[in-house]
């Protein structure tokens, strides 16, 4: 059966349509969900797309993390449902506590929008199982608050548990240990700052290196 991937739209979300296109190109079915929904419509996985949910008021991702649908996402994620947060979605996952750490202003205060090379360091997650460890991908970065930070005590723990999913080859934003993507201990929740959904069609993007994330989830049997 085709994997059904819910894509949640919040007020201020930008990348929900690109995410839906990428899910379809990966061989799964995209199911639109709305921030006020109180159930997940039986989807097998969820993508929290990029953008500026609620205008980034208070902190990026903070208000979205308290929305009605996110309470369902947190419940389902705790039970093992795959969740991918891209950019603003990554910020939401950190704000809910599903992922450790927080994302703060880029080191040089610039909004950065360009393709960057990243290296996959964990291919055991629901969203990266298609890749070989050490795979280099060219994926667009598009953020102002992408500087990944955790407390000095938890950084060694994150590294020891292998929770880093991808690192920047040339760290653009000051993220600790070049971290571009992380996962939870179960490997079902992944947050990534670059945008794999913008690298799925050679005609309009920097290549198709992002497709592997969507092939990974389409191949997950549920």
């Amino acid at each position: 059966m085709t994997t059904r991937v819910g894509i949640i739209t919040f007020p201020g979300t930008l990348d929900d349509r690109d995410a839906a296109t990428a899910v379809a190109l990966g061989g799964a079915q995209a199911v639109p969900l709305w921030h006020k929904d109180t159930n997940l419509n039986g989807v097998d996985a969820v993508i929290l797309p990029g953008g500026f949910s609620y205008g980034d008021y208070l902190r990026a991702g903070a208000l979205a993390s308290m929305s009605p649908i996110m309470q369902q996402v947190i419940k389902a994620a705790d039970q093992g449902m795959p969740v991918l947060g891209i950019c603003n979605g990554f910020q939401m996952l950190c704000e809910t506590g599903l992922l450790p750490g927080a994302l703060t202003r880029n080191k040089d205060l610039h909004f950065i929008c360009r393709p960057e090379l990243i290296t996959i360091t964990n291919n055991k997650t629901a969203w990266t199982n298609f890749f070989q460890p050490g795979a280099e991908l060219l994926i667009p970065v598009k953020n102002g608050e992408g500087c990944y930070q955790v407390s000095p005590e938890s950084l060694p723990e994150i590294e020891a548990k292998g929770l880093v999913v991808a690192r920047y080859n040339n760290n653009p934003n000051g993220s600790m240990n070049d971290i571009a993507a992380i996962t939870n201990e179960a490997g079902n929740v992944v947050g990534i700052m670059p945008h794999p959904e913008h690298a799925v069609d050679g005609l309009v993007g920097a290549g198709v290196d992002g497709l592997g994330f969507f092939w990974s989830i389409a191949g997950v049997t549920v």
Partner: peptide, 13 residues
């Protein structure tokens, strides 16, 4: 306030 150990690029600017 940001914790003292957290980089504050706005303050620095």
């Amino acid at each position: 306030m940001l914790k003292p150990e957290i980089l504050d690029p706005q303050g620095r600017a």
